[in-house]
Every structure is written in structure tokens, then in C-alpha cells.
């Protein structure tokens, strides 16, 4: 592993994992289950106008996570072209899971706990357990991702040598 670095591959995985985790959040919690929207604690979607305002902010959120995923794809492309970056499926999968965990943790702390612009389940009487479960899922993803990255630490073949 002399002169090899895994950090560009991990960076790509973290960005793409966070982006894809953002899509899971937006698609499952905002659109399918409709448990919350971007500003649903400040502006509950109780009528069509309020629902459409929330829909606008959900759309911008999706656009932003799309950009983050696209940036991650660009970083992955650059990492794949480097001869000092080992092409490891375990490392990349671990980084994807860490990215998802980071998204849940950071979004949960900022949006749910500090700013309170929405909660995981806006319709629950007690919202805190849902918010804490979301944070716990973030921590669990971080641990699983870290273990996978660790298990790929001996992979040392760059992409150019794999293909």
C-alpha cells in the first residue's frame, strides 16, 4: 500500500451515499409515506397551498441532493483514473453507507433537533422517538460503513490494473 491513498474513493462514496440517502429520505418519507415535508413543522400541509409550498421546498431539496450525487459521480470518475487509488468494492460500499449515515445524522441534528423545521413523523403524538430512531440509524450506518472500509484496507490494486 506504499504511496496508495483510499481517501478519493471514500470521498466519492460518501458524496454519492449521502445523495442517495437523501433521495431515500425524500422519496420514502416525503412522498410515499408523506410523514413530513421540508417545512412541515413551520407550515403544516393542511391545505393545497401549504402542501404546494412544501412541495416546492421538497423539489429544491431533491435538486440539491441530485447535484451532490452528480458531484460524487465526478469524484468517482477522477478517483478511478488515478493510479494511486486502490479500486476496492468494500471500501466504496462502506463509504456509500457512511455517506447515508452522515446524511441521516447531520440532517437529523440540524433540521429535526436544532432548527425544528420538520420531524421524521409529523403526525405522531410524540415526535422525539422517531427523530431519535432516525439519528440512531445514522450512527448504525456509520459503524457498518466503517467496518466495511476497514475490511477493504488490504485492497491495493488500482482500477487501471483491474480492467
Amino acid at each position: 500500500m506504499a504511496n496508495m491513498t483510499r481517501s478519493p474513493l471514500i470521498a466519492a462514496g460518501v458524496l454519492m451515499g449521502a445523495g442517495l440517502g437523501g433521495f431515500v429520505d425524500g422519496i420514502v418519507l416525503h412522498q410515499i409515506l408523506q410523514w413530513h415535508n421540508m417545512l412541515s413543522a413551520r407550515m403544516p400541509p393542511n391545505d393545497l397551498a401549504a402542501a404546494k409550498v412544501n412541495m416546492f421546498w421538497d423539489g429544491l431539496f431533491h435538486a440539491a441532493v441530485w447535484v451532490m450525487t452528480a458531484i460524487g459521480l465526478g469524484v468517482l470518475w477522477r478517483a478511478g483514473a488515478r493510479r494511486d487509488v486502490p479500486w476496492s468494492g468494500k471500501t466504496f460500499t462502506g463509504a456509500l453507507i457512511i455517506g447515508w449515515g452522515l446524511f441521516n445524522l447531520i440532517e437529523g441534528i440540524i433540521d429535526h433537533q436544532i432548527l425544528g423545521i420538520h420531524h421524521v413523523n409529523e403526525y405522531a403524538e410524540n415526535k422525539l422517538p422517531w427523530d431519535l430512531a432516525f439519528l440512531a440509524s445514522g450512527i448504525a450506518f456509520l459503524l457498518v460503513g466503517w467496518m466495511l472500509i476497514r475490511s477493504g484496507r488490504n485492497d491495493d490494486v488500482p482500477r487501471a490494473a483491474v480492467t
Partner: peptide, 29 residues
């Protein structure tokens, strides 16, 4: 209700987690 005086505030709040994660990604790279 979208384009009012809170627009930039809401926009920044919505982007904040994504900005932080992107910064972490670039830091890692």
C-alpha cells in the same frame, strides 16, 4: 408564501446539511 422575505433563509436552511456533507466530501478527497 415561497418568494417572501424568508426565501433566502429557508433556502440556506434547506441547503445547510448538503453544504456540510459536500464540504466533508471535498475535505476527504
Amino acid at each position: 408564501e415561497i418568494y417572501n422575505r424568508n426565501f433566502l433563509n429557508n433556502f440556506f436552511i434547506m441547503l445547510l446539511p448538503i453544504i456540510i456533507i459536500t464540504a466533508i466530501g471535498f475535505g476527504l478527497y
